[in-house]
């Protein structure tokens, strides 16, 4: 099958990463629960923020800010569901 380079994703991913993270729902890789990110338990310190699944406590994502950079790792997150209200492309 033909493949393309990552530039092909520029358009759709730019839209995806503009989502509102508080209303997006994500699947926890630890227990499989699907919940809005706003319901996660966030542990915040000077080192960074770690969001954990409210159900099982597994790490969903981490956010580190420093040195003029941000590092985001959706390490324990499966698919993220982003509502595209008013845009039915199907």
């Amino acid at each position: 099958m033909q493949h393309f380079d990552g530039n092909l994703l520029a358009g759709p991913l730019a839209e995806v990463f503009a989502f509102d993270p508080t209303t997006a729902r994500a699947r926890c890789n630890g227990c499989g629960a699907v919940a809005e990110l706003a319901t996660a338990l966030v542990y915040r310190s000077g080192a960074g923020s770690v969001a954990r699944c409210r159900g099982c406590g597994a790490v969903l994502l981490s956010l580190v800010e420093g040195d003029g950079r941000r590092f985001v790792n959706f390490t324990g997150t499966g698919a993220i569901e982003i509502t595209t209200a008013g845009r039915d492309d199907a």
Partner: peptide, 20 residues
């Protein structure tokens, strides 16, 4: 954990090895 998430693999404070 932190080394996967942005922090330096080694972390020597005298070399300011804070992030990747």
């Amino acid at each position: 954990f932190w080394e996967q998430n942005g922090y330096h693999l080694h972390g020597d404070p005298w070399k300011e090895e804070r992030y990747w």
